[in-house]
């Protein structure tokens, strides 16, 4: 997803001279081409994330479109007040790109895991949040973000995520995507874990459970219609995310359902259970340890609808 983002940004920058990339000493090699071809529009601000956001807001006030980039916790939590005051309160046209969604930086440990970023970003007025599921979506979303006026938080993975979409996929900001139809239960996920969700749904189908899968790439503003429709039509919803349960996608969806759905529904959230992950291993191993792997999704579905 990272490479897809960087190459899309390069394409946009070729056409739109206002686009800039601000990096906080992260992005070796992948930004080389951008840097070489647009030397004035690439700034490595150093290991100084708070300053990066403030500078970006200043640039934006003069017509630039800065895409700021570093590892997720450092660009969301470290800089939070700069994002709140300089970007959100003033509705600045600054894009916040966090690389390493969820637990993907598995061995780098809890300082590098991104498990509260959705929560803290979504509570900021004016902020929009996009969380792509695969490289194609990451690319298409980047084009869309450049067109959106105002703050956007873009939560991307790193490298090697499996493809979900074809090249001709069309991304629509603010609209969830039904990836697979189904009648008995709906799985709603965001980010690269959409793939694990699709795999779980396939196995559930073999067990005779017709499972709808929805990808929510835009976490804010949330596509209420697709959620309410799923509630109405399937009567059971499970949300899946690589994020803390506190304040994540699942909690946003729960609010929508509780306030607006008239259907009787069964509901369950899958995510990190309010704990940091100090377990080491591969990304998959961490997901299993935290109870958010494909197998966990399958067993939660079975116990919810039995």
């Amino acid at each position: 997803m990272r490479n897809a983002y960087v190459s899309a940004l390069y394409d946009i920058a070729k056409i739109n001279k206002q686009i800039m990339s601000l990096n906080a000493d992260i992005g070796a090699i992948v930004f080389d081409k951008f840097k070489a071809d647009f030397p004035d529009r690439f700034v490595n601000v150093g290991v100084a994330e708070q300053n990066m956001i403030g500078v970006a807001a200043g640039l934006a006030s003069c017509g630039k479109i800065p895409f700021t980039y570093t590892i997720t916790p450092f660009i969301t939590a470290r800089t939070y007040e700069q994002i709140r005051v300089d970007v959100c309160i003033q509705n600045s046209n600054v894009k916040i790109v966090g690389v390493g969604a969820g637990l993907v930086y598995s061995t780098l440990g809890p300082t590098h895991h991104a498990i509260e970023d959705i929560a803290i970003m979504k509570t900021l007025p004016n902020m929009k949040i996009i969380s792509p599921a695969d490289p194609i979506e990451s690319k298409m979303a980047t084009y869309a973000i450049a067109e959106i006026k105002g703050p956007v938080y873009f939560r991307i993975g790193t490298a090697g995520e499996p493809k979900i979409y074809d090249e001709d996929y069309e991304f629509t900001f603010g609209k969830g995507v039904e990836i697979q139809p189904g009648e008995d239960v709906t799985l709603i996920a965001t980010g690269s874990i959409v793939y694990d969700t699709i795999m779980a749904a396939r196995e559930l189908k073999k067990k005779g459970i017709s499972t709808r899968v929805i990808n929510i790439h835009t976490i804010k503003p949330l596509d209420k219609d697709i959620i309410l429709k799923a509630a109405r039509e399937t009567g059971a919803i499970i949300t899946i995310e690589e994020h803390n349960l506190e304040g994540g996608l699942g909690s946003s969806i729960a609010s929508v359902i509780l306030e607006e759905s008239r259907s009787q529904i069964k509901f369950k959230r899958i995510g990190l259970k309010d704990s940091f992950c100090s377990f080491y291993g591969t990304h998959q191993e961490l997901k299993s340890y935290c109870g958010i792997a494909k197998e966990d999704i399958i067993s939660e579905v079975i116990s919810l609808i039995k």
Binding site: G109, T111, Y280
Partner: peptide, 27 residues
């Protein structure tokens, strides 16, 4: 950095003897 180990790419104070402070985020 292996499965189930306590020694990650950044040190953690709650699990490793002799590590005073968990670090990994600079500054």
């Amino acid at each position: 950095c292996q499965r189930g180990g306590i020694l990650g790419a950044h040190p953690e104070s709650h699990s490793i003897p002799g590590v005073e402070v968990s670090t990994g985020s600079l500054g």
